[in-house]
């Protein structure tokens, strides 16, 4: 199927992009990698008058170290995220989760910023971003602001990005030496996550000294499993303690029910998968 007609611009700087967005009004839409956006246009579920393609802005691409943070440009592709040495060393969880996104072709085009701005509750990158306490860099006409991940995801497909604003970068704290696992559960390889768990833990001589856990598709936004995190910290690493701590995984969640899963099943999966994710991360 073919999208409805739209105008198209491909700015080369963030300032140009912001200007185009402001000028374009509410029917202007930002396109990042286009891997969710173009199918939506093809199904004619979206009908923008202007598409602003961020693909021509070099400053939005790439991974760099900035003090105690790793900064990922919003237009860095999933493929690049999975291959990046800095991320592998300091933010393994985001790289692990990104490996499970869609398929090779989609990962060649799709971007971290695009996925986070899309904020699909079943998308795989929001939960690790939340778990990792990332900061999201948003630029508008009034300049740049940084939003903690905990404040960024507001609801289904809704983020803190305001009108006339663009997500330009994601800043991750360093988790050097932490183990990481993204435990994804779906019906077939191509399907979206029914539930997934993003876990990264620090283990020191057999004791869990720190843990970060985020849940995918357990609410309209990603959810932090803080009860599990606190139950884990200070525990000696064993299957028993991890599974016991994981029993709190569904606290504070509000999963939906659909044909693939009832809410009770999602809560159950959250507990099981949290246990598995933490064990694998610590392993």
């Amino acid at each position: 199927m073919i999208p409805a007609s739209f105008d198209y611009v491909r700015p080369t700087t963030v300032d140009e992009a912001v200007q185009a967005l402001v000028d374009g009004g509410e029917d202007a839409k930002i396109m990042a990698g286009g891997q969710s956006f173009i199918p939506v246009l093809r199904l004619r579920m979206g009908d923008p008058s202007l598409v602003i393609d961020l693909g021509g802005i070099p400053e939005l691409r790439g991974v760099r170290e900035d003090g105690d943070q790793i900064v990922v440009g919003a237009m860095t592709t999933h493929h690049e995220v999975t291959r990046d040495d800095l991320l592998a060393r300091h933010v393994a969880l985001i790289a692990e989760a990104t490996k499970t996104v869609a398929d090779f072709q989609v990962r060649h085009r799709g971007t971290l910023g695009g996925a986070l701005a899309h904020a699909d509750p079943a998308g795989d990158l929001a939960a690790p971003t939340l778990a990792l306490d990332a900061e999201l860099v948003i630029v508008g006409q009034n300049g740049e602001r940084r939003v903690p991940a905990a404040d960024f995801f507001e609801d289904y497909f809704t983020t803190a990005i305001g009108p006339g604003e663009i997500l330009t970068a994601i800043r991750f704290p360093k988790y050097t030496g932490w183990g990481a696992r993204y435990e994804k559960f779906n019906r077939v390889a191509q399907a979206w996550s029914i539930v997934a768990v993003a876990a990264t833990v620090k283990v020191d001589s057999g004791t869990i000294t720190d843990a970060r856990i985020g849940l995918t598709n357990m609410a309209g936004t990603p959810v932090r499993a803080r009860a599990v995190e606190s139950a884990l910290v200070g525990q000696s690493m064993s299957e028993e303690t991890v599974r016991a701590a994981a029993q709190a995984a569904a606290e504070g969640t509000s999963p939906t029910s659909d044909a693939d899963a009832g809410s009770d099943y999602r809560e159950h999966l959250a507990r099981v998968l949290t246990g598995r994710a933490v064990l694998a991360a610590a392993g």
Partner: peptide, 15 residues
Amino acid sequence: LDGLSVKSCSVLAVQ
């Protein structure tokens, strides 16, 4: 596309 596999139904010709 520039050496990487892509789904050409999810890329605009202008891109």
